[in-house]
Design a protein around this nucleic acid. Structure first.
Lengths: 223, 223, 223, 223
DNA sequence: AATGAATGAGCCTTCATTCAT
DNA sequence: GATGAATGAAGGCTCATTCAT
């Protein structure tokens, strides 16, 4: 599982030339990366900005050169860590040409590789925990992650129903049922994991797919 | 034990001789009830004890007559609100005599009626959000809610597999896959609900059961 | 050293007849006795009235039936525990007929037996610690304990100087020098005792007397 | 190290370039100085950190930039105010070449000049009053002040006994008897002084030395 | 750009005192 | 007389945010 490696680098502006310039441009990512580590470990409110600054190797005041407030830093963490993966999913959808079940599987495995299996997996827990108290962040997450993510799955499901591969179903609920176990798996790792037994993600995903395949498949195909 | 339900009238009943005593007995429930409201709305850490006290109509100091600390109040909320429902589920399991799918459905519907559809649905979100920072509460919840709850579902699944009603499956993962959508539904209502569209629980549960029925059913029974 | 036994009983009103009556009259002494224990152990401010009440076996409210405030209880502790010993000393002085050094010794040994060697030894520490913040108690202690106590020693010293047994000296300072080691011995037992080595009071008093005898004695008597 | 002395001008000196830096360096002493004033006046527990901060002209939070807790501030007051004087005494001892009585006198006069006659005289009272409830501070004081201070006097006494200048005596008790009047004099100034008559330290010390000289002197030397 | 000292509002917890029963 | 539930002011400590350097 190499997925715990740092992710944000992918977003580095490409025109960086000198080392100094590179450093200056990299600053925000270094800060959001440090923030992500601490946010997912302790929660947003429970994380002190002193600790974020210390982990990033800067002084506390420097944070305020790049982010207006703690909440803005939170938003930036999502913007930089999660949002780019949605574009990747949308491209996958556009280019896909196999069965709908294969598409579905590909989307979910992609989620696991880019989010569920990395430290970004802590973000859903963060959103769940803090959204009530930070509505601006919640709104941003809703508009830029949830809506777009569900659109991907909805497209895959509707394609399968239209082709007769899946039996007819309520798409919105089906989406919930499909993603809930994955989200819970991710959430679990950042909450009660320490006193619950460890899950094997591979087995978990396989079992989930297996149940899904049978649950979604049109009845005549099981005869 | 419906004691965590709203108890607003106890304060006014004039027909009691030993008003003082009745009050003393009712206090803990009044306090945990107020605490539950605020905890699920704002999170445990973000809730101020002043507000809990104010909502219960007492002064801040009174809380400490009944609970040693804020964390003890948290534990009491779980103890009084959630733990009793486990006993109800265990009784259901012992008395059941229908199909395993019916038992499973009964357990899940029971959960919805006693927890998922009530204010208590906020507790799982609470635990997820705060367990890292309050290990004692987390341990208590794990031992008294998670372990016992999973044991119920495990028994139902194993019964179905043994009778040939369900096809063989990895019980632990199946439990996760079964409860995850329900938990997420509950969690959702206390986090991003305000910016996401409302779910209809009835439809949701039915779709979930439907997928489950097909996913779990042994193949020969669908032929 | 039987001196740790309860002291206040000596002050019980003698007309008590029935058990009920005895109990009622004894209440204040039971309360001051419990208070003394805790005051000398933890200090006045650091002692909670709950604990005083608990140790006396009554409820917290009961304290306020007998004492107007915590400070009034403090004063009563002194009034009941210390003040009566001054009368004893004054009687000793009046009746004495030996050498002045013997009188001095008798007064100091009497102090040790009635105060220094009992739990009342904690009172000087209490006064030193708290007098600044409780001036009324301080004034009471000054007027009723310090002034009368010093008068006793002053009389003994002046008698010795007048008879030529002691050499001429500044009485006030001599009093200080004489009582300081005794007070410190008492104070010590209620402050740093736990990390300092234990003193043997017997040796201590003897050494002190020895130094005193040589220090006070008129020069011609040492020739 | 006179750093615990009043430092009011540091705040105003305009001739410094790095005002910030000088301020940072001076802060701890400003804070311990303010703390000492209030601690000896009201006692440690009864002193509010708000007041310490106000007296030092800073906000409450600033205290926590320099000291981890109220108790750490207590310890720093001792560390900065008292401990350095022990080193001075040890040097005095090492360099002394007169009679043992002169050495003893020098040590005691030194104590008076550096502690007994200054604000620091309140520290012994503080320790006596609060040590029971703050064992860590008590231990620190014991190890770094009491043990070292007694060692000084013990050396002086043993030197005098060895040379035949003093008669044989129990050193530990003699130390107690010697320092008790001085400690009591210091303690008095911070407890009952306001209702007791003022002592003249000069007379007091002289009388004490006089009694001591006679009490300690070997008998043959008085013949 | 970067620093880090300083701020001050806020929260949990304690406890002397009151008062209805 | 006796109780003990209730109060509310107060204090230690935290931490996001500011700003002079």
């Amino acid at each position: 599982m190499p997925s715990i490696a740092v992710v944000p680098d992918a977003k580095l502006s490409p025109e960086a030339k000198t080392v100094r310039r590179r450093r200056k441009d990299a600053r925000p990512s270094e800060l959001t990366s440090a923030a992500l580590d601490l946010f997912v470990e302790r929660g947003f409110s429970a994380t002190r900005l002193d600790d974020v600054a210390a982990r990033a190797g800067v002084s506390k005041g420097t944070l305020y050169l790049y982010f207006d407030s703690k909440e803005a830093l939170f938003k930036a963490v999502i913007e930089e860590g999660i949002v780019p993966t949605l574009a990747a999913g949308e491209q996958r959808l556009a280019e896909h040409s196999g069965t709908s079940m294969a598409l579905l599987r590909e989307l979910l495995v992609g989620w696991w590789q880019q989010i569920g299996g990395t430290r970004l997996a802590g973000v859903p827990k963060l959103i769940i925990s803090e959204s009530r108290n930070f509505p601006e962040v919640a709104q941003y997450y809703h508009d830029n992650v949830i809506v777009r993510g569900r659109a991907l799955l909805r497209a895959a499901l509707q394609r399968g129903v239209a082709s007769g591969e899946f039996r007819p179903l309520d798409a919105e609920t089906a989406i919930d049922v499909i993603i809930a176990p994955l989200l819970m798996l991710a959430i679990w790792r950042f909450s009660l994991c320490f006193c619950a037994q460890e899950r094997d993600p591979q087995t978990y995903l396989e079992t989930h797919f297996d149940l899904l395949a049978n649950g979604l498949r049109a009845l005549e195909s099981t005869a």
